[in-house]
Design a protein around this nucleic acid. Sequence first.
DNA 1: CTGAAAGCGCTAACAA
DNA 2: TTGTTAGCGCTTTCAG
Lengths: 345, 345
Amino acid sequence: MKKKTTIYDIAKALNITVSTVSRALSGFPAISDTTRKAVVEMAKKLNYSPNKLASALKSGKTHIIGVIVPSVQAHFFASIIHCIEDGLKDSGYRVIIYQSNESVENEINGVRTLLEAQVDGIMASMSLETKNISHFSEIIKQNKPLILFDRVNTDLKVPTITLDDFKAGYIATKHLIDQGYQKIAFVTTVHQIKIFNDRLEGYKAALTDHGFPVVEDHIIFGGLSIKDGRFGAGKLMRSSNKPDAIIAGDDFTALGVIKKLKEIDETPPKIGVIGFANEAFSAYITPNLSTIDQHASQMGQECAKMFLKMINQESPYANMEHIVLDPGVVERDSTNKKVAIKTEA
Amino acid sequence: MKKKTTIYDIAKALNITVSTVSRALSGFPAISDTTRKAVVEMAKKLNYSPNKLASALKSGKTHIIGVIVPSVQAHFFASIIHCIEDGLKDSGYRVIIYQSNESVENEINGVRTLLEAQVDGIMASMSLETKNISHFSEIIKQNKPLILFDRVNTDLKVPTITLDDFKAGYIATKHLIDQGYQKIAFVTTVHQIKIFNDRLEGYKAALTDHGFPVVEDHIIFGGLSIKDGRFGAGKLMRSSNKPDAIIAGDDFTALGVIKKLKEIDETPPKIGVIGFANEAFSAYITPNLSTIDQHASQMGQECAKMFLKMINQESPYANMEHIVLDPGVVERDSTNKKVAIKTEA
DNA sequence: CTGAAAGCGCTAACAA
DNA sequence: TTGTTAGCGCTTTCAG
C-alpha cells in the first residue's frame, strides 16, 4: 500500500491501455459497457484514487476556486462561504478558503498561493489594510475570474457584489432618528475600502436630510473590534458634546461600545447603539443589538452565480456586472427607547 | 498575457536550459551567482509564477495539509486552525480548510477531495454524525499523516490531541457543587465520539464522589445548538424533579439554555449554567457564561508540532503519541450565586 | 557549474 | 470501440 495505484495499474491488470481506462473512468461515451464495468470494478479492487494534480496539470483546470476573506470567525463571512460552496458544488467546483486576518501581507500571500495552486478563479473581500491592489491585478492578467464582494475597491475593473452601503448608513441613522435620538455618533474605520466611506456618507446624508448637523467630533476613526468599540465609546462619552446614540462599524465594535456604556451606567437603549452585520451573537447579548442585515446568503449565492457565468464565457471579463443588494434594519432592544422606559419604571 | 510564462520561457530568453533555471529558482547551491541573478531577474521581468501543480506532481509533495473541522464558525475550531497555520508556516506548509458541517457525507467527501488534491497530510476533528471511520483509514493506507484532534475516535490507530474530557466533565460538575448547586443536570449529545462520553462519565463521577445521586432524567441527549439547548432546558424545567443547575454540551447549547431560563424567569445564576469551549460571545452575553476552556491555541500548536514530527519520520505512524491537555474552569456570573443574591437584594 | 533527457499521472488528438 | 503517442511544467539523475 506504499505507492498509489494509477491508471497504468488498472490498464495492466485488465490488459488494455491507459487511454481506455481514462475514458472509462471519465464517462466518455464511446466505450463499451463491458470495458467500462471491468475498469470501474478493477479501480475499486485496486483502491484507485485519481491524482487530480496530474489531470489538472494536463487539462489546465483544477475545479478549485479560492475564496479570500478577512476572517472566517465573522459570521457574515462564514455564511457567505457556506453559500458559495452550496451554489458551486453542483457544477463540481470546490472551494478553498484563505484568511487574510486583515493583513495585506497575508492577502498578497493568499493570492500568490492560490494562483500557484492553479485555482480556476478567486473571490475576495479585502482586508482593512489593503491599499495597493496590484496583487489582485495579477489574477486579471492571468485572465482568471476574480470577483470582489462586500469589501471592494472600485479601481479594480472586476465584477462586484456589494450591499448598498450608502443606504445602509442612511437607514441606520434614520432608524435612530425615528427612535427619537438626536445626537448620533459614528465609530468607524478609515481606509480605501468603499463600503466604509459609503456608510459614512449615508450617515451624513441622513443627518442633513433630517435637519441635524454633522459634528466632526462625533465621528471616530479607528479599527473595528471589541477593543476599538470600547475605546471609541469612551472617547465619545468623555467629550463635552456627548452623543445620545452610537452607530458602530460592525457588531463586534458595537459589542465593545455596549460594554463601555454599561460600565459607565449608560446602558442602551439609554444611549442607542446599532451595528452592522447581524452576527450570531447579536441577538443574544444584553441588551440585544439592533443591526443592519447584510444579506450574507444572498451575497454568497450571487458570487457563485457570477463565477459560473464568467467561467462559461469566452472572456471572463466581458459583460461585467455590479450587483448591489438592499440592506435592512434589524430592530432590537439596543435602539428601542420604549424598553428603556419600561425598565426604568 | 494569455498564457503563463514557464521556466522554458526564462530559459529561452537567457539562452540556457530549463534545468539551470529550475536550480537557480529553487536555491540549488551549485549555481553561479551570475546565472542565479540573471534568472531571478528574468523571472520577475517575465512575471513568472511557478506552477505548483507540476512541481508537486513531480516531487510528490504539495506542501499543503488539509484540516477537516465540523465548522469554522465555532470559535474553538477557528482558533485551532489559526494556530495550526501559525505553527506550520515557517516550514512552508499551507493549510486548506474543509468543513463537514457535522455531516458524515461531507466528511467523506472532504477526505476524498483532500486526498485527490494530494495533500501531504490531514488533521481532522470528527463530525457528530460520524460512526463508520473507513474513510479515515484510507489516509492511513496511503501512509500519509493523519492526526485527530478534540473529537477523536479511539478505533483509529493514529496520534491524537485531546482535552482530558473526563476531567472537564468532572471539574464542571465540581465547580457547580462548590457553588452550592445540588441538583445538576446535563444537556449533551449521544454518539461515537469519545469526548462526549468522557465528559458524561466525569460528570457522573463528580456527582458520586460528592455524595449526589446520578438521576437519569437529568441527562438529556439531543444535539448541540441553541435550539437544542432551549429544548433541553424546557424539558428539564417542566419535569417533576427540576434541577438547580445545568451543564450544557457546548457554549451554543448553553446559550439556548439561558434563553429558555430567562423566559421562564429562572435567570442564571438562580439556575446555574456552565458550557464548554469558551466561545467569543460567552463573556458578553447576560449573564456572562461560565465555561470550560479547551485550550484551542495549545491544541493547534500541538497539531502542528505533531505533523512536523510525523512527516520527518521514515514511517509517519512510528512512535505514536496521544497528547492530553488539561481543561480549566472559566468562572463567570452564570454560576456565581453571590451575584444572584446581590441582584435580588 | 551547466546540459540532456526521463518521467510524475493523466488527457486527448490522431490512428487503426 | 480501442491503441499510440505526445505533452502539461517541473525536478532530478547522469553526463559533461
